[in-house]
Each structure stands twice: as structure tokens, then as C-alpha cells.
């Protein structure tokens, strides 16, 4: 089954952007709820954590100085077309990517994504949305999850499917690593409400309580969100899926230099599968998380170099050897 590199690129980014929009919606929803119960000075601390987790690039104090209040901030994170990471921008980008491969994804996928996009576009014009933000973020999360469910049940398990999975889990692993780093970098992040918020940002609160207990301990939470193999929003789970997708892609589309890519993912999988929490904490959690991010970036680059934007010279070698025709 032949798949154009451009098509793989669109599927990968469609999936990444949608995952990002869901993550952002959940984060804002959780933090918005959290700060409702906080005194202003600790509210600022939480906003800062949200901004760092979303890699916004400015602190809350800086934004306040430029005259932005918390309401405007959530608007920027949610609806701003000039902010490429806003929920609106992500869903629009996901749809643009899907539109380019509309004939290759199922019509159910397209119409759900289109519906989600139209819903967000409409909400953007709705002045009243600020009065009930939770409903809106709920809609976005449900729309993104519905899309993933539809994708699961309507997509042929070929290379296209693998690139969709790849995009989804690269984005997830990355945003989890950033979130954990932002969280544990802050002092006072061991407070109960902070830990609850962290788990909720990963849809992990209920699952965590089932596996452990509502007694929230830092070490257990790190264990769960970083190393658990069965929970879909753990770094290890996401990295396992990245590895599996790339294995399938290399079986379907043999490329001479996929070995390097598989070695990169294999190494990351191994560090999460065989590393122990004690070692990781002893060596320093922030450094470990930063290393995961770096490795994910390398994997992303290697995917491009192998399948999407490969240099012509590399692709021509087998041609001249007559292996292709």
C-alpha cells in the first residue's frame, strides 16, 4: 500500500493538533476550577503553572502588567487566532490538515472534526461563553474524544492509521513531560489540591484512586504518570504506542534508514520500561523529564528524515540499484 509522504504528514499533524486541543481544554478547565477557590496570590502561582505547562512563554505577572486579567488570559488560550496554541487554532489546524486528506480519512471522521470546528467557531462569537466556560471545555474534550473513537472504529489499520497514532502519542508524551516538569519545578506543589489538579490534568484522578488510594503521595503519582504501562495518559504508555506505531510503519514501508529511528524509540522505551523510580528520583526528575523531551524531539526529526522529508540522494540509492523496478 503506497502512501504519499505528504499524506502521512497531514495525518500526523491532524492527530497531534487535536490531541493538543484536548489537552489544552482539559488543562484550562482544571486550573480555572482550581483558582476559583484560591486567594489571589496563590491564584497567580497556579496561572503561572498553567502557562508553563502550555509553554506560553510569559509569566502571569508579566501578562497582568500588560493589562491582561485572568478572563482575558483564558480567552487568549482558548480563542485567539493569533496564538498558534490556542484551542481554536489547534482545531482549525487539525481540520486544515484533515481537509487535505479528506478522501483518505473516513467521512465520519471528517464530519465529526468539521462539527467540532464549527462549534468552536460559533463559541468564539458567543459573548456569554465566559459565564459557563466548563460546558465549553467539556464540549471540546468530548468532541476530540469522539473523533478518536470514530477514528478507532472506522480506520483501516494501514500506514495511515499508524501515522495517526504516532501523532497522537508523540503529542501526548510530550505534553505530559512538560506538565510534570512544570509541576514539580514549583515549590509547594505537594499540596493536596495541586496534586489533585495534576492528576485531573491527565484524566488520572479516578484511575489513580483505583490503583492506589486517594492518599496522594508524590512518589506514587510520579510512578503512575511516568512509568505505568496500563494507563493511557502515562508517558510510558504513550511511548510504547509510539514504538509500536513506528514498528508497524517500518514493516509496511521499508526504508533503509528506519533502523536509526527504531533505535531512538527503543532506547526511550527501555529507559521507561526498565528504569526504576528510585534511580530516576536519585538522578533528578527534572533532568529525566528534559531528557525525555529531547528524545521525543529527536524521534520527531527522525520520522521526518525517514518518511516525509527525506533527502533525495538517500532515496535514489535503491533506485539505482534497481530494487524498485
Amino acid at each position: 500500500m503506497t502512501m504519499l509522504s505528504r499524506v502521512a504528514d497531514h495525518l500526523y499533524w491532524m492527530s497531534r493538533y487535536l490531541e493538543r486541543s484536548e489537552h489544552t481544554a482539559r488543562m484550562i478547565d482544571v486550573f480555572y476550577n482550581l483558582v476559583l477557590e484560591q486567594a489571589p496570590e496563590s491564584a497567580a502561582r497556579h496561572w503561572d503553572k498553567l502557562l508553563t505547562s502550555l509553554e506560553f512563554g510569559s509569566t502571569f505577572a508579566e501578562l497582568e502588567k500588560s493589562g491582561l486579567d485572568s478572563h482575558q488570559l483564558t480567552q487568549t488560550l482558548t480563542f485567539d487566532a493569533d496564538n498558534p496554541s490556542s484551542i481554536y487554532s489547534c482545531i482549525r489546524a487539525a481540520r486544515d490538515n484533515a481537509r487535505n486528506v479528506r478522501e483518505l480519512i473516513s467521512s465520519e471522521m471528517w464530519s465529526e472534526l468539521n462539527r467540532l470546528y464549527l462549534g468552536v467557531t460559533e463559541a468564539r462569537r458567543d459573548e456569554e461563553i465566559g459565564a459557563h466556560p466548563h460546558d465549553f471545555y467539556q464540549t471540546v474534550k468530548e468532541g476530540a474524544q469522539l473523533f478518536q473513537g470514530i477514528t478507532d472504529s472506522t480506520t483501516y489499520r494501514g500506514p495511515g492509521w499508524s501515522f495517526i497514532q504516532l501523532g497522537r502519542f508523540v503529542e501526548r508524551a510530550r505534553s505530559l513531560a512538560v506538565l510534570l516538569e512544570a509541576h514539580f519545578k514549583q515549590a509547594r506543589s505537594e499540596e493536596y489540591l495541586d496534586l489533585v489538579a495534576l492528576l485531573k490534568c491527565c484524566t488520572a484522578f479516578e484511575a489513580f484512586c483505583k490503583v492506589y488510594s486517594p492518599e496522594l503521595q508524590r512518589a506514587r503519582i510520579v510512578q503512575f504518570l511516568l512509568l505505568n504501562s496500563e494507563f493511557p495518559h502515562s508517558v510510558r504508555f504513550a511511548v510504547d504506542r509510539i514504538d509500536r506505531s513506528l514498528q508497524r510503519i517500518s514493516e509496511n514501508a521499508p526504508q533503509a534508514n528506519s533502523t536509526r529511528l527504531l533505535r531512538l524509540t527503543g532506547r526511550l522505551v527501555a529507559s521507561l520500561r526498565y528504569g526504576t523510580l528510585e534511580e530516576i528520583l536519585a538522578a533528578g526528575l527534572p533532568g529525566f523529564l528534559e531528557e525525555i523531551r529531547r528524545q521525543l524531539a529527536d524521534i520527531h526529526d527522525a520520522v521526518y528524515a525517514t518518511y516525509i522529508a527525506y533527502p533525495i540522494e538517500q532515496a535514489l540509492e535503491p533506485l539505482h540499484a534497481g530494487e524498485f523496478w
Partner: peptide, 23 residues
Amino acid sequence: VEGRDLLVHDGVVSMRTVGGLRR
């Protein structure tokens, strides 16, 4: 395909696929 999916080398047209260039 779009134009950017195709390339010409040595007078031969190929498309860029995830499995390599295909004539």
C-alpha cells in the same frame, strides 16, 4: 498527488511516498 509530491531526477518522474520514491 500535488506538484510537491512529485520530483524529477535524471528525466524520470517519481512521487515521494513513505516507502521511498516511486516512479
